[in-house]
Write a protein that binds this DNA or RNA. Structure first.
Lengths: 335, 335
DNA sequence: CTGAAAGCGCTTACAG
DNA sequence: CTGAAAGCGCTTACAG
């Protein structure tokens, strides 16, 4: 891959044009107060005249700061993560950092590659919702000096070590299940997430504990999905083979939507034929008359908390690790 | 913002540890064939032992290649752009480039800032779906040597100059409108996109031409939205004040969903009470019995074309600009 | 095949 | 307040 000479105009050209040293140009660039107005004006004129733009790599090499923050999520197409990103942006935008986003597509191998690339001193801080199975890499990168804030996913091994903002997955899943069971159902179908994800594990544990505590006799069918729409759809199809279950629980928003779309297509009356519970909101076009129980996640608020931790960490690399556990309420949606 | 010493271990440390020169370490890193197996082994051992990672900034400074590609879209939360990004990834992933994504939120000012940051030699190529009003900045950055591939949005001023992959917005909007008008409606409500976006302009022109040609007598009500869900919802609300129109046309997917959600809530029977047309698929949970006319966009294929243009451009910075115009068919969705 | 050395474009003590 | 100079961590002709 050839690369032609780009960025022909450097700080040196500007210095020459303005008749000053490169040090002075640099000072103007960095808004140092110790430059006379006269020189500042001349330098600025030359910059404009020559169309000069600083070179981020050179600056980063010298300062050890990239002024970029990396955000690595498992599925950038999932509105949940999109809102987390927005929340981070809300907080970070005023600072002059750019956000680098990448998606692992729930693939630990892909995630590992991305982490390693980002760790080549490309970012000042990494926000990570891990697909799982990468604890060693994450620790290695962190020990080497890259600040990391975990979000949504928190593998046990990393719990005390890193900053994190997570939901009370166990508690919310427990409550959701309880609410659904309270409707007096005899059979329950559950669509779990991929057990590589810490959230999926915790939610599964919450569901099981609630069943154990509240309705140990209920007949349970389980399906292990991958947190994507299609797996929810496939799960519903599978469940329907044995007739419509009295209740269905989907452990994330996308799988819930997949399941709903299949159930609706089959003419299932949600809220009447079947009690539906979803971990995460299903904010889409639904049949009027539908009732759904759901965990009301607040990803934007989560994102804002993450943003604050990032700021704090940037200011104080030595600060103690903080773990925010945000409680998410269970709500009922009646349309 | 303090920055502690990171990346303590450099190529020099590795060289020392392995008892070779930094040049040799660099050669091993870059898989140069001209290193004896013995040295290669020693170097690799030292790299592993010391946990060395190359510094991207230093490499970029020297080689003028960042091995990163920037993708700047107006709304990263819109599934349409997400799929374009996936399409690009499909093609680019095998090359060893990382993708930097950013979102302008349809805000030209924000876009301008982001372009300028990315243009500080942070990326080797920019994929841009512009919010509009930034033609001068885009040209400046391009002239300075940053390869750019436009996607979806193509402002007239940039048409011949830059690589681009776009839809035939005019044609598809024309056909969509025609199909809806053929249902024999007397009144038509249209939700346009923001006129800063080239796509919104072209689609509006297509709609108007079709009306002119096919049903000049139809009563038309127009609303100018911003391509987001809420504006579609507001538009529908506005239209409904004067009673349900016989036909409604939404000029992108999100506004279509917003409008639909409001119409459904109000008990409007889509496909019966009202002919619904959408520029873009509404791939969500709908009432069975609903009929919708829509332009079937193929963003993932668009993305793949973009990826190919990026590759080509990376290989040959001097290549002539290419403009792919992809025709998108109008389909009917019956549920 | 290997190494010494120059240099990429910045920033920043250090003098003055 | 300003400039000369060193150096950030790499790569790459150039010799050998």
């Amino acid at each position: 891959m050839a690369k032609k000479e780009r960025n022909n105009v450097t700080i040196k050209d500007v210095a020459e044009d303005a008749g000053v040293s490169t040090a002075t140009v640099s000072r103007v660039l960095n808004k140092s107060p110790f430059v006379t107005d006269d020189l500042r004006k001349r330098v600025k004129a030359s910059i404009a005249k020559l169309g000069y733009r600083p070179n981020a790599a050179a600056r980063a090499l010298k300062t050890k700061e990239t002024r970029a923050i990396g955000i690595l999520v498992p599925d950038i197409a999932n509105p949940y993560f999109m809102h987390i990103i927005k929340g981070i942006e809300d907080v970070i935008a005023p600072l002059e950092y750019s956000l680098l986003m990448a998606s692992s597509d729930e693939d630990p191998m892909k995630e590992q590659k991305l982490i390693n690339v980002l760790a080549e001193d490309r970012i000042d801080c990494l926000v990570l919702a891990t697909a799982g199975s990468n604890e060693e890499v994450i620790e290695a990168v962190h020990e080497r000096g890259l600040p990391i804030v975990l979000v949504d996913r928190l593998p046990e091994e990393l719990a005390e070590e890193l900053d994190a903002v997570v939901e009370d997955n166990y508690g919310a899943a427990y409550e959701l299940t309880q609410r659904v069971l309270e409707q007096g159902v005899h059979s329950l179908a559950v669509i779990h997430g991929p057990q590589t994800a810490s959230t999926a594990q915790e939610r599964a544990a919450g569901v099981r504990a609630a069943i154990q505590d509240k309705a140990p006799g209920v007949s349970v069918t389980e399906y292990y999905g991958d947190f994507y729409f299609d797996s929810g759809l496939r799960a519903a199809r599978r469940f329907l083979k044995k007739g419509c279950p009295e209740a269905l629980l989907a452990m994330n928003n996308l799988m819930a939507m997949g399941a709903l779309s299949e159930l609706l297509k089959r003419g299932c009356k949600i809220g009447t034929d079947l009690v539906f519970g979803s971990y995460g909101a299903v904010d889409t076009l639904l049949l009027p008359g539908t009732t759904i129980y759901y965990v009301n996640q607040s990803p934007r608020a989560l994102g804002a908390s993450v943003g604050k931790l990032v700021k704090r960490r940037l200011n104080d690399p030595e600060a103690e690790a903080v773990c925010d556990v945000v409680k998410q309420p269970v709500l009922v949606q009646r349309l």
